[in-house]
Design a protein around this nucleic acid. Structure first.
Lengths: 253, 253
DNA sequence: CAGTGGTCTAGACCACCGT
DNA sequence: CGGTGGTCTAGACCACTGA
């Protein structure tokens, strides 16, 4: 990775560095390999550590690198394709999906969620917490909001929380006929609780997927799921296995 | 915005600052309003400018702020919902869509695109460049790759490039029966050319939407579209108008 | 031109990990 | 404990905008 001349174009150093490093990753490193530490790299390229870090941040955002405090910087594997929307609509928690139930409570949601569910401002709803794993790594944390009116027979359950309660909420929800669903994706940053679940630091970039489930001509449930933006590629549509990467010959370690 | 005690939790300053500023934006600012400049803000909160900037970066990533060099930092309007996937599949460029044709060429695509299209490694394809506007703002730049085999009758056209050529490619493409499509969304950073089209700096966060269009049991076209992550919320499904925001009473200026 | 955000530096200390 | 990435500082200069 010889230092090409900086040219006259006034390209920022960190951007040029990103390009150089990106090409070096393609040609001289394999997945899982540990890079030299930041102080050494900065010295090698003749820049301040902050500048080098700016380049690394870009590459991490693009899913090329993985950095862990106290450990080091490693070459990331290609992003995992995660199916989040399919042609045939199904209820969350239907048999065989990739989610793991963790908890459920009955509480007043944020104003935004209440508005989407068309429930009263201070009306509590069931909140099911789930997490999604792929290849042994946590990739998503979800809050599924279910208004009491969608699961009228749940009152028999008296467990205040826990996975068993979560199962009960989903079981009751599945009794409704799902008429449709729609989703929206936007960029966000992980709040402290999500970050912990996703094994990231607070503020880490996440893809927020908001899904509305319709039944009986109403919004019967609202899911807000945060996916790790560095490791995930969200897929919609018939076949979830799109494989687009600039460097197809990268191999698993 | 009294400084709550820093507690023992060792929350980073920039994260605490982000929270404080976020609440201030909700309660004390309206959309379009200009914030004090970074040096003043940093002094007011008693932190270095770099730390203040880290907090602003977070808020910009979340779509709460908009920063422009030489101008200042303003409060951003709520994100625009942009429909990128619908129940009924349609060809790109069908009448009435929000895209604007800009150019078309015939050249060898990147290896990744060639692999997805199942064309030969050095086989040229038609590349149609389009951009998408919403509310007078550019929100997306797209490269639509069409293998020559999908538009066999195009050879009559001899214009080497230009919008007229782009129209011709799409017209020929529409003669095929669209059998299906699928999409993937992932986080990326804008390359120099995309950044210019999107009126952003290189490296700005973008949502990359890769869509495959199927016809005659093959991939007849491949679209790679980059959307501004700061201003867009991508919507999939029946109704594209999901409105989820933590602060519903924010008004346009 | 003055004022803004964008880049860059050379340090320092902290939180975390594995040994 | 030593080594890693994460945070923070106090400066400097540059690129761009608008008056």
């Amino acid at each position: 990775m010889g230092t090409t001349q900086l040219e006259s174009v006034a390209e920022p150093k960190y951007w040029h560095l990103r390009t150089v490093l990106s090409e070096a990753l393609d040609s001289e490193f394999s997945v899982g390999e540990i890079l030299p530490n930041e102080r050494d790299l900065a010295a090698r390229f003749g820049v301040a550590r902050a500048t080098l870090r700016q380049a690394l941040e870009q590459l991490e955002l693009e899913g090329r690198l993985q950095r862990r405090r106290g450990v080091g910087t490693t070459v990331a594997p290609p992003r995992v394709g995660v199916a989040v929307g399919t042609e045939q609509h199904i209820w969350p928690g239907a048999s065989g999906d990739a989610w793991q139930l963790s908890d459920s409570t009955f509480e007043v949601p944020s104003a935004a969620v209440a508005a989407a569910l068309e429930t009263g401002q201070d009306e509590p709803v069931h909140i099911v917490r789930r997490s999604r794993m792929t290849h042994g790594q946590p990739v998503a944390a979800e809050l599924l909001h279910v208004p009491a009116s969608s699961v009228p027979d749940l009152s028999a359950i008296d467990a205040p929380s826990g996975a068993a309660r979560a199962r009960a909420v989903l079981r009751e929800l599945h009794r409704l006929d799902l008429e449709g669903q729609d989703s929206a994706v936007e960029l966000g940053s992980a709040r402290a609780d999500d970050a912990k679940q996703l094994d990231r630091l607070p503020g880490a970039p996440v893809l927020v997927v908001t899904t509305r489930y319709f039944a009986r001509s109403r919004t019967a449930a609202l899911s807000v799921a945060t996916y790790r933006a560095d490791t995930c590629r969200l897929t919609f549509g018939d076949s979830g296995a799109v494989e687009i990467h600039e460097d197809p010959e990268r191999r698993a370690s």
